[in-house]
Simulated scan of single mutants.
Amino acid sequence: METTKNDESGRVLVLGAGYGGLMAALRAADHAPVTLVDPSSEFTERVRQHELAAGRTSIGHPLAPLLARKGVRHVPARATALDTRRRTVTTNSGEELRYDRLVYALGSRTRGADVDSTGGDDGRVFTSETAAHLHERLQDGRGRLTVVGGGATGIETASEIAELTDWEVELVTAGQVGPSLSDKGRAHVRQVLRALGVTLREGPAVTPADLDADAVVWNASLQPTTEPATAAGILLGADGRITVDEHLRSVSHPEVFAAGDAAGAWTPDAGALRMACATALPVGTRAGRNAAADLTGGEVRPLRFRYQAQVLSLGRHDGLVQKVRRDDSPTDLVVTGRLAALAKEQVVRSTVRALRIAAR
C-alpha cells in the first residue's frame, strides 16, 4: 500500500532550514509526514548577509507560515547526534527523534577564522554569520575595515559597506579577485571597487593577525557542517561533503539523502556543484521529493541541473551578470551597471518566492 502523508509509519526528518533543507521539507511534505529540525524560528536569506551588515533591518522570514499549510512539524533545536543504526537524531534539548528517511541539510559556515558573535578573540573579526554584530560595530564610528576573500561574498560585502557607510574599506584576496569570472567580468569588478573607494590587494594569503584594521570581515571560503554525519560513519568526499549518488542518496547509508552545502551533489552537465543558494534550492527540491518517493513507492529520480549565470551585486546601483557554460565556466558575455543590479535583486527575491510557492 502506498504511504499517505498522514501515515506516521513513513517519517521524513530534515535537518536544517536553510535554502536546501527548507525546500526539501516542503517538497517531501507533499507525500509524507515531515519534521524539520532547526534552532531558529526564521528562514534567513543568507545571500543578504552583507546587506544586513551595511544596515538592512531584517533578512529573516518566519518559518511557521511557510510550514503550516504543508503540515510540517518544526522542532526548534539543534541536531547534536545521529544514530544511523537506530535511525534516530538527538537534539541539544535531549529530545530523540526517529526517522524512516533522513535529509541531511545542515549547510556550511565560514572556514578559517575562529569567530563568535563578539568579534573573535580580539573583538574585531567578523564573518557573514555574525553580520548583525558587524553592523553594530560599524555604528561605533568611522574606521578601517578589511574584507578578506575575493570571491562573490567578499566582493559584495566590500562593495555594500563602502557604498553605504563612511568606513574606509580594503578587500584582500589570495590570488586574483573574482577567480570564477571572465577577464571582462573581473575588470568590471575592479573598476567598480575603485569607484567606490575600495582598496584592492591581490596576492598571498593572510590571517587576521596580519591585518592592521579596526574591523575584519573574514569571507575566505565555506566549510560544510558535517560533524554529525562524520560521527555517524556517513561517507564524506575529499571536499568534506556527504558523498551521494545521482539521486542525492548517501552512498554509504541509503536511507539518508543530502541537500544544500553539506551534499556533494553533482550532475553530468555541471559536474560537482558549488556551495550556493542557486544550487541548494534545486538540490533540496530533488532530495525532498526523492526521500518521500523512497517511502511511498514512487519514482526516485536523478538530479538534473546545469549552470546558466553568476550574478553579483556591486553596491546598490551596480552589478554583474556573468554568463557561464553549463559547467559554470565563464564566457565573455557580461551585463553590468544598473540593469545587472536589478537582475541580481530579482534573482535574490526569486529564492523566497520559490519557497513560498513550494509552501502552497
Rank of each mutant, 00 (worst) to 15 (best):
L102K: 02
L67C: 07
N219C: 15
G288T: 09
V192K: 00
G185T: 14
V251P: 08
G271C: 03
D332Q: 09
V198D: 07
V198N: 01
L281Y: 05
E2I: 15
R27I: 07
T4I: 10
R48V: 12
H133L: 12
D122K: 11
L320W: 02
T230H: 09
S182M: 07
I357Q: 14
L171C: 01
G288Y: 02
Q191I: 10
R144L: 11
A287H: 03
T225R: 11
S41V: 13
I234K: 03
G18V: 07
V347M: 01
A187E: 10
Q308R: 15
T91F: 09
R353A: 14
R101M: 07
A232K: 03
G197K: 04
A79Q: 04
A238N: 09
V37L: 02
A291Q: 00
I161F: 12
N6F: 14
H133R: 14
G119E: 07
T157G: 05
A17F: 10
K323N: 14
G119R: 11
G237S: 08
A131N: 01
S108L: 08
H50V: 01
Q223T: 13
R101F: 01
V72G: 04
G337V: 02
T91I: 04
Y99D: 02
S9I: 11
D239P: 00
R316V: 10
R190H: 13
L196M: 05
V189M: 03
V125P: 00
T285P: 09
L52Q: 01
A158F: 04
G18T: 11
T157K: 00
A162V: 06
S41T: 12
G151D: 13
L164P: 04
V347W: 00
D212E: 14
S350A: 04
D318W: 02
S329P: 13
V147W: 12
T88D: 01
L134R: 03
I161K: 03
T230C: 14
R78C: 15
S180M: 08
V177C: 05
Q139Y: 13
G185F: 09
L145I: 15
R249C: 08
T130R: 01
A215L: 13
L273R: 04
N92D: 15
T80P: 04
A343M: 05
R56A: 09
V335P: 07
G154W: 05
G185K: 03
A25T: 04
E96P: 09
H74M: 08
A113Y: 07
V324M: 00
G150D: 10
A209I: 12
W167I: 12
A354W: 06
L273C: 01
S329F: 13
P76F: 12
D212R: 11
E96G: 14
P39M: 07
H61W: 14
H135Q: 15
L320N: 07
A213G: 04
